[in-house]
Amino acid sequence: MSDEGDAAGLRRVLEPAGVLPQAALRLDTDPRIRPDEVRVRVERLNLDAASYRQLHTAHGGDPDAIRAEVLRIIGERGKMHNPVTGSGGMLVGVVEEAGPASPLGLREGDRVATLVSLTLTPLAVTDGLARWDGLSEQVPAEGHAILFARSIAAVLPGDLPVPLALSVMDVCGAPALTHRVVASHARAAPPVVAVLGAAGKSGSLSLAAARRAGASRVVGLVPTAAEEARLAASGLADAVVRADARDPVAVAAALGAPADVTIVCVDVPGCEHGAILATAPGGTVVFFSMATSFSAAALGAEGLAADVTMLIGNGYVPGHAAMALDLLRSEPAVRALFTARAAAD
């Protein structure tokens, strides 16, 4: 096996042979670590929004059924990898043991957030998720997880409550990539930026990041009157409009003029064509939602003769955690939205 395969956790794949952990059907959760691995004592999982919404819908909001389904997935797969959405989430825990060859710079006792998906993280749960009410994305849990040499983790800041820090780090790739894309457009001319799903975690951070990167105007699109009022009151967007992001014509009508950059942070399927219609020729669409159908996006753009660049937000940009935390600390409106959401969870 190559060093790269080892670093990526290939030895932890039980089936099928030869794939990387994210594509595996089953991972080895043996707590005995190899020299370049780290074992984390799990304290809390954060299911990604698309996965939790699918589980909630599939089980009619029944918390016992949702809990049982999450336990089944983890037990069968050795990771939290929703087979319907293909997504997972991330976790917070305390480092129990760090191998001497691990390059992650973590030490025993560090409280960390993993910044890689649970879909590729070996995970064992030992408490039956007994403390989780099944009614939110944040899941108190006991067990252990394994990080590889090519994993990413950040030590949690001491000035923020754990649930709040976890909420931010769960979506920290969105504002970082938004900043990069908007700054690139701004070198030619300050762009107009539209964020679909703008009142959520990744959406609110993306609005703040777009403005910081030099957007001439930021527009937030939300689905309900309550979210419209809340986002308008925050001042994060220059304009707030309301439409169902799954209705392409309604999205285009709500926005009026197309945007130069469109950021999709909606956690339901079917938003691809609206995002494409919302974007001006030569513009860029960034899809952050794990509910995105990338074939629908590609074929939809072709069918609409839309000359747009489409990017997949892969959750990692160098410095993404630090940027997201800085936005939370420096933008009172962002912190207020996150604090309210954390309290609701």
Rank of each mutant, 00 (worst) to 15 (best):
A233E: 15
A130N: 09
P318K: 07
A198W: 12
A298R: 12
T119M: 10
T29N: 07
D345E: 15
I312A: 12
A336C: 12
S51K: 06
A278P: 01
L115K: 03
V40S: 04
R53L: 13
H179P: 01
A243V: 12
V222F: 05
A336W: 04
M80D: 10
F294W: 12
G109K: 09
L45K: 02
P35D: 15
L236A: 11
R72H: 14
V317L: 06
A296M: 01
L337F: 08
V181M: 10
P281T: 11
R242G: 11
E15D: 13
E108V: 10
R107V: 04
A245R: 06
M290R: 13
A188H: 09
A305N: 10
L91V: 05
T284W: 04
A23D: 15
V264E: 15
L14V: 15
D30Q: 13
L304Q: 02
E272H: 00
G99W: 11
T224H: 09
L205N: 09
G235A: 12
E37K: 03
A291Y: 01
P31H: 02
L304T: 04
P190R: 10
A8I: 04
L104H: 11
D260V: 05
Y52A: 02
L236Y: 12
P103N: 11
V94R: 12
T121R: 01
A149L: 06
A149W: 00
C265Q: 11
D244Y: 02
P248W: 08
T292D: 08
T339D: 12
V168M: 11
E69L: 14
R150A: 13
D48F: 06
T309F: 01
G9T: 01
P63I: 08
N46C: 14
V125L: 15
M310E: 05
R12T: 07
H273P: 00
A49Y: 05
E43C: 03
R341A: 12
G303W: 00
V268L: 02
T279K: 05
C271M: 05
L327H: 05
A8L: 15
G99N: 08
G93R: 02
D48C: 06
L45S: 00
T85G: 06
T284I: 07
G9S: 01
G75F: 14
A278H: 02
S293C: 07
G256Y: 07
S202P: 06
V264W: 04
A165I: 03
A233I: 11
D159I: 03
P63D: 06
P31Y: 10
V112R: 02
L104Q: 10
S204I: 15
R77N: 05
V240P: 09
L115H: 06
M323Q: 14
L325A: 07
D3W: 08
L236T: 10
L120Q: 07
P16T: 06
P191W: 10
P100M: 11
A342T: 15
E137W: 03
V218E: 14
I152D: 10
E15N: 03
E227Q: 14
I146E: 03
F148D: 01
P140W: 08
A113P: 03
V264L: 11
R150P: 00
A113Y: 03
V193L: 07
G60M: 09
D36H: 13
E272C: 05
R107P: 02
D238I: 09
I73S: 08
L236Q: 12
P100C: 14
